[in-house]
Design a protein around this nucleic acid. Structure first.
Length: 297
DNA sequence: CACTTGACCTGTCCGC
DNA sequence: TGCGGACAGGTCAAGT
């Protein structure tokens, strides 16, 4: 899915676009994408107004004045795209002049649309998901922080709580594991996925298969800073569009233009010029510079 | 324990 | 051009 920077980019967009809007109707195409009962939806979603859009890890939270929140996970291929009503600039306007190349979505709904939320002003929010792994759930807002998976998330890497001490304590909980799998563990740090794990490890010159216990403390300092820098830069660039990520306005992110290893197999390392290699680590495709990132002994 | 595999799904790309 | 297999940003459960 979208990782932290992509979800955050969507959050920023939705906050601006849908806050204060009243939900008029909801349509589904794929029951598993939205498993709540029709009566819950009728009672707590229809007619409700959007209060706020927030994020925890890779989960998006849309709180409503009914006391419920829409909790959304985009997994691998989810998109949340807002389309204004035709009166204030509809699909033709948006995708026609101006930005012909930064959009990936055409007229909506399309074949991957799973849920459509229509607002009172006739604007719409589309939840698209090619692979159907993503989901939307309606949950009482006060219960959201107590859901199992929400409680288990580690610290937010871009919040003050992500101190060097906390970071070291968290990764050392898995001191015998390989660093790449630890970075992907959402209970250690929230929000890092495959792209940003690879980028952070390249930036700190750590081989992904290194055991955490063998990483010196000063290198862990560099790694924490690399994680923060990589995620911050990506949010600044509107996230990474490798395949089908788009923001709330249907537009691509440009972080892939700044990536040093991810999806750059055989291209020269930006530091030393030797070709980037693709290996498998933690069961995932993993990109490294074999010269800069020394294999653990 | 740590780690891998399979499952959830659809689509694309690569080699034959 | 067609076909089979590998692979894709995430996460969970089950097995080694």
């Amino acid at each position: 899915m979208p990782e932290l920077p992509e979800v955050e980019t969507i959050r920023i967009g939705l906050q601006k676009l849908i806050r204060g809007k009243r939900i008029e109707s909801v349509d589904f195409d794929w029951q598993k994408s939205f498993p709540n009962s029709p009566s819950d939806i009728k009672q707590f979603l229809l007619g409700a107004t959007v209060l706020d859009v927030s994020r925890r890890a890779k989960v998006l939270l849309i709180s409503l004045n009914s006391g419920y929140s829409l909790v959304i996970h985009l997994k691998m291929t989810g998109q949340l795209v807002y389309v204004p009503s035709t009166q204030d600039g509809g699909a033709e306007d948006r995708f026609g002049a101006g930005h012909p190349n930064d959009s990936l979505v055409g007229a909506l709904p399309d074949k991957s649309t799973r849920v459509t939320i229509s607002f009172h002003d006739h604007s719409k929010l589309f939840f698209n998901d090619q692979r159907k792994f993503g989901w939307v759930r309606l949950i009482p807002s006060v219960e959201v922080p107590h859901i199992d998976f929400m409680k288990r998330f580690g610290p937010e890497p871009l919040e003050k709580e992500f101190t060097q001490t906390i970071f070291e304590n968290q990764v050392m909980r898995r001191s015998k594991s390989r660093i790449k799998s630890v970075l992907l563990d959402q209970t250690v740090i929230a929000g890092i996925g495959n792209i940003y794990a690879d980028e952070s490890l390249w930036a700190s010159k750590i081989h992904p298969e290194t055991r955490v216990q063998n990483i010196p403390n000063n290198t862990l300092k560099i790694l924490r800073k690399a994680i923060i820098d990589v995620l911050t830069l990506s949010i600044d660039k509107g996230g990474s569009t490798n395949k089908n990520y788009v923001n709330a306005e249907g537009k691509k992110g440009s972080y892939m233009d700044f990536a040093h290893v991810y999806n750059r197999t055989n291209q020269p390392c930006d530091r030393c010029g030797s070709p980037i290699k693709k290996i498998r680590s933690a069961g995932r495709g993993t990109h490294i510079c074999t010269v800069c990132q020394k294999e653990p002994s």
